[in-house]
């Protein structure tokens, strides 16, 4: 298992002055998988990526891609790693094709192969029609697809994408995610996607890492993380019943294991340490209530995300004791 780790970081740390952007990050990514690096804006995802590409020097620790040290041997790293930055830019006065040709030359693709290479890549990302348009006229979605073609120009083993789904419309998003998935399943490339958009990433990632304030608080398969939360005794139940009266509320409050109770519209959101469904349905049935809605949350990424954020925050509060740090919510 250990042999096919292609990206690994050891105690990777980056501090800007006194602010620690990335804190002792230990990350291992297997060859051929899609790894989602999830976290709110400003969690240190981009900084991590920059260090992986050797674009900024870590304060501490090391990172390597396919055995090449990212700081010392960044040229070799950049040869096998494609990077699709957030807000990828193309030279507006050049056509898409010219932009790709320029990238090909920078990567030392032989002149006689450039054109056929460009054509096949354009076809792959579905940009053949727009290839001879000036890049300045491209929409966000077109730019992203062109960005993929640009990244593929060097035929990379590893592709790193920073917030690739930002600003895409739903249809564009769906196609784009499909494309990413293909790069992994068909070509066997390793893909690291950073994002704060949980649902999209959930669809394509083999594993995710959750990143809060510079630290990786959890990493693993989405299912595993969900089970882990459940096993830690963390349940969230959404429930709506008719009539919605004080007696019902009182009953919920009296239940054993309820940690938190809040109201969203007509629905109650109950956080508890055990499964409450049987008890509540029994009560409703016995007392002539009508059950309108009931859903046990958990196991999905949103919940995983929330729980780990809360944990990270609690720890931070414990450390800081200033108590002035609350209010951070997921930004998806």
């Amino acid at each position: 298992m250990a042999e096919d780790m292609i990206i690994r970081t050891r105690d990777l740390t980056k501090a800007y002055g006194s602010k620690v952007a990335v804190n002792h990050l230990n990350l291992e990514i297997r060859k051929g998988e899609i790894f989602g690096l999830l976290g709110p804006n400003g969690a240190g995802k981009t900084t991590t990526i920059l260090m992986l590409l050797g674009l900024t020097e870590p304060t501490l620790g090391t990172a390597s891609i396919d055995g090449h040290d990212c700081t010392r041997d960044s040229l070799q790293v950049k040869r096998i790693t494609g990077y699709l930055p957030d807000n990828v830019g193309f030279y507006a006065d050049m056509t898409g094709r010219e932009n790709l040709r320029f990238t090909a030359r920078l990567n030392g693709v032989p002149e006689n192969q450039i054109d056929s290479r460009i054509d096949s890549l354009l076809e792959r990302v579905g940009m053949t029609q727009a290839a001879d348009q000036k890049a300045g006229t491209y929409s966000k979605g077109m730019k992203q697809r062109m960005g993929i073609a640009d990244v593929l120009m060097k035929d990379p083993e590893v592709i790193i994408m920073d917030e690739p789904t930002n600003g895409l419309d739903p249809e564009g998003m769906r196609e784009f995610l499909q494309l990413i998935k293909q790069l992994s399943t068909e070509d066997g490339r390793t893909i690291l996607v950073s994002s704060h958009q949980l649902y999209q990433i959930q669809q394509i990632c083999d594993r995710v890492g959750i990143f809060v304030d510079g630290s990786l608080v959890a990493a693993g398969k989405i299912g595993e993380l969900g089970r882990k939360i459940a096993s830690e005794g963390h349940y969230v139940l959404e429930i709506e019943a008719e009539p919605c009266d004080d007696r019902f509320l009182g009953f919920i409050g009296s239940l054993e294991g309820v940690k938190d109770l809040s109201k969203e519209g007509d629905r109650f959101i109950i956080t508890s340490s055990r499964d409450l469904r049987a008890g509540i349905t029994h009560f409703l049935g016995m007392n002539n209530y009508t059950l309108l809605h009931m859903r046990q949350k958990g196991g999905d990424l949103d919940e995983i995300y929330r729980v780990y954020f809360e944990q990270a925050e609690k720890e931070e509060e414990k450390n800081a004791k200033s108590g002035k740090h609350g209010g951070r919510k997921k930004d998806a």
């Binding site: 590409l53 830019g89 920078l106 640009d150 060097k154």
Partner: peptide, 13 residues
Amino acid sequence: NGTLNRLVSQPIY
């Protein structure tokens, strides 16, 4: 324009 970003991630000095 974000082009520099793309440029520095290419295998060039």
